[in-house]
Simulated assay, not measured.
Amino acid sequence: MKTFGGPVLFLDRSDINTDEIIPAKYLTEITKQDLQPYILEDLKLEGFDPKGEKLKHARVVVSRANFGCGSSREHAPWVFEVNDITCVVAESFARIFRQNMFNCGMAAIELPKADLDQIFSHAADADAAMSIDIAAQTLTVSGGGKQQTFSFELSPFDKALVMAGGWVDYADTKY
């Protein structure tokens, strides 16, 4: 099972699409690793630098509603995976993106807007970090000397996929 948690990258916008996560011009790359330098290259968001230190160190992304909308492609979760980002927390996800995250053994955690607003209060904290306990279905955000814990729900199947490390590892143990 992957490790979940670490420094947080806050992307305070809804409707971040798969073309912004990994531009289509890179979909011809041969390996997942080849996608690594192009993560979020086309994302336009005030104060965001796709080549900046925050992204390089991030292990969790926190965003708003409808994350991963647009084209259905596995490349979007893959580019997070090869950049050691194993969890995205948002109000909602595009269905295919969300399932591709679970299939890759990564977490796509949905929280209500009110909880996300509280988490976004840590966006200015240079030390903002999150720990995620998949088994207990809780996440704890800390920074600026404050700490808050939130509960989330995953379906039993999605939780099993994440805990197994993804669809292939899950299938190896079940079939």
Score class of each variant (00 low, 15 high):
P112E: 15
F93H: 03
E81V: 09
A124Q: 15
G105W: 10
A58E: 06
T86Q: 15
S63I: 08
Q99N: 14
A135S: 10
L55K: 01
F93G: 02
C87N: 01
H75W: 07
V88H: 09
V60S: 05
A114P: 12
T138F: 11
A65D: 13
F93E: 06
A126Q: 12
P77H: 10
A129E: 15
R73P: 05
A58K: 09
A128D: 09
S72R: 03
Q99L: 01
N83M: 06
I109M: 02
E74F: 01
I109S: 00
S72W: 07
N83R: 05
M106T: 07
K54Q: 14
E81W: 06
F93N: 01
E74L: 11
L111C: 12
F93Y: 07
H75M: 08
S121I: 10
A128N: 07
K113A: 15
C69S: 12
A58S: 08
L55I: 12
T138Q: 14
R73Q: 06
C69Y: 03
C87V: 04
P77F: 08
C69I: 05
V79G: 09
F67T: 03
A135N: 09
E91K: 08
P112T: 06
M130W: 06
E74A: 07
A65I: 04
C69N: 11
V88G: 12
P77G: 03
